[in-house]
């Protein structure tokens, strides 16, 4: 238990404390999209209200990509994973904790930022509610994909750009059901989005752990 606490404390310190860029960048990026979109399509209130939810979903997806270059690669380079392995701490455990810390560093902030975002685009209260529920269901999945991609591309020099490209197709199911739920408020889309999210969260520590071990052998 104290091991988990120590790992989580370090990860949160890194992601929030500015050691690796801080949590504000994804949130500012997200809000910036919400600010820029009305300028780009013009002040057509019905159009903005109809498309705004989808735009915010795309913005959330892209904001989730931003921190992925810092999730695994620096620790791999500095030998943290070697030292964990020597101490019998599995990569899966370290990465499961990191998944939680990663989500905590952008998920809740994104939910808060979605409120001014929705206001800027003139979304109705019903749509905003569905958007928030969808983000609650979908952002853990986005974090899981981000962590997996981050571990897979950790040893590549072009990892960041490649990571972004790899994440997008994997995130499509979350986007389809999460953003799709905005149009069909029967909850089925949200449930599917949450199911995909949970499955991804279950797989991610193991996939990322294997990737880290493979990187060590290389």
């Amino acid at each position: 238990m104290s091991l988990l606490a120590a790992l989580l404390r370090r990860d949160l310190g890194l992601l929030f404390g500015g050691g690796r860029g801080g949590p504000w960048l994804p949130v500012l990026f997200f809000v910036a999209v919400a600010v820029l979109f009305p300028f780009a399509v013009g002040p057509d209130a019905p159009l903005l209200a109809r498309t705004g939810g989808g735009v915010l979903w795309v913005a959330a997806l892209l904001a989730a990509i931003l921190p992925i270059d810092r999730l695994v690669a620096p620790d791999l380079e500095a030998g943290f994973f070697d030292q964990f392995a020597l101490r019998g701490i599995s990569e899966e455990l370290v990465l499961a904790v990191r998944l939680l810390a990663h989500w905590l560093s952008f998920g809740p902030l994104l939910l808060v930022a979605a409120l001014p975002g929705a206001a800027l685009l003139g979304l109705s209260s019903g749509t905003t509610r569905l958007l928030l529920l969808g983000l609650v269901a979908g952002t853990p999945g986005l974090a899981a994909i981000g962590l997996t991609i981050s571990a897979l591309t950790a040893t590549l020099r072009t990892g960041v750009a490649l990571g972004g490209l790899l994440l997008i197709p994997l995130a499509v199911p979350i986007l389809i059901f999460g953003a799709g739920a905005l149009a069909n408020p029967d909850g089925a889309g949200l449930a599917l989005c949450a199911a995909i999210s949970l499955a991804l969260c279950a797989i991610a520590p193991f996939a990322a752990g294997s990737a880290v071990r493979a990187a060590r052998e290389g």
């Binding site: 370090r10 310190g13 890194l14 404390g17 500015g18 050691g19 620790d75 380079e77 500095a78 030998g79 943290f80 070697d82 030292q83 020597l86 101490r87």
Partner: peptide, 16 residues
Amino acid sequence: GPIALLDGNLPLDEHL
């Protein structure tokens, strides 16, 4: 027995 390794890396957080 427990194994400790000192190699060329410094696994410490640089900003702390």
